[in-house]
């Protein structure tokens, strides 16, 4: 996904925290793979898998210094749990993915 100049890069809140450097880098480098998983679960209407992936990011993203990513994932999970309209879920996944694309280590 290309970045437009209007979409600033998102960095971890723990930039400069030496004990976090390694796992934040790992988290960010694994993020595209997780995004792919989320998009393919959505494409396959595999709600259980989508819910699990979103749930794990909801709990963990904040811990890696990306709370906004955690909140966006929480909305995806909530949408599935509450049986929201497909369009709502799609739009929430879209918001999450757009945020994730701006994340840099």
């Amino acid at each position: 996904m290309r970045l437009s100049p209007d979409d600033p890069v998102i960095r971890s809140e723990f930039v400069g925290d030496p004990e976090m450097e390694g796992i934040v880098f790992l988290f960010v480098s694994e993020l595209p793979q997780r995004l792919e998983g989320i998009q393919s679960a959505l494409a396959a209407s595999d709600w259980e898998r989508l819910r699990t992936l979103a749930h794990q990011l909801k709990g963990a993203a904040g811990g890696y210094g990306f709370p906004q990513l955690g909140s966006a994932a929480a909305l995806v999970e909530q949408g599935i749990r509450e049986g929201c309209d497909l369009n709502v879920i799609k739009s929430r996944v879209g918001t999450f993915c757009a945020l994730a694309a701006r994340v840099r280590a």
Partner: peptide, 16 residues
């Protein structure tokens, strides 16, 4: 006990 590997990684670092 947590079903997310991301959490285990975080705990290992935070409690090291």
């Amino acid at each position: 006990i947590d079903d997310s590997e991301l959490i285990h990684r975080l705990l290992r670092v935070r409690l090291q």
